[in-house]
């Protein structure tokens, strides 16, 4: 284990303890299970996002209530996949599109995750307005966050 990773580990551990936040490591003992879990969460995000996208781009009538529900679903999902990238989830498996560089740039990966979560939160807030002109830029910001992380961290 490199020094920086050790420090990172200690920092993370102490942060968890100090917050008395009993966030457990993920429950997986099999790498394939971790991969499947995070893929399911990401694909649900995409399914929900696809419906919002159709509305934001005019391929489907805008339904404010439905849009809000989808945005909330993505918001909740935006907290789901990431711990499955740790523990046994760090092992590169055949079915995974995650590139090994994720674990080399772990802190960058984490900061992208929190940017993404922030963007989704802003989308949820905008969705409350029921005004597509307010929603669209927030929606595009989320999409850009997806893309930026896929470039470099997800196999084509």
């Amino acid at each position: 284990m490199t020094l920086s990773r050790t420090l990172c580990f200690i920092a993370t551990l102490s942060l968890c303890l100090s917050l008395l936040n009993t966030a457990q490591a993920n429950p997986f003992t099999d790498a394939e299970d971790a991969v499947k879990y995070r893929q399911q969460a990401l694909s649900m995000m995409r399914d929900n996002f696809g419906i919002m996208s159709a509305m934001a781009r005019g391929d489907r009538d805008y339904d404010a209530e439905q849009f809000k529900q989808r945005a909330k679903a993505v918001y909740h999902l935006s907290y789901i996949p990431w711990d499955a990238f740790q523990g046994v989830g760090e092992r590169v498996t055949e079915n995974s599109d995650a590139l090994p560089v994720i674990w080399e740039n772990w802190s960058d990966f984490e900061s992208r995750i929190s940017n993404f979560q922030q963007a989704v939160q802003e989308l949820v807030e905008a969705a409350d307005s029921g005004n597509m002109r307010e929603i669209r830029p927030k929606f595009m910001t989320v999409a850009r966050n997806c893309q930026q992380c896929h470039q470099g961290y997800r196999a084509d």
């Binding site: 999409a143 997806c146 893309q147």
Partner: peptide
């Protein structure tokens, strides 16, 4: 090929 693309985010 462009007709069949899917960006895994929001475009098909």
């Amino acid at each position: 090929t462009g007709l069949f693309t899917d960006d895994a985010i929001f475009y098909q």
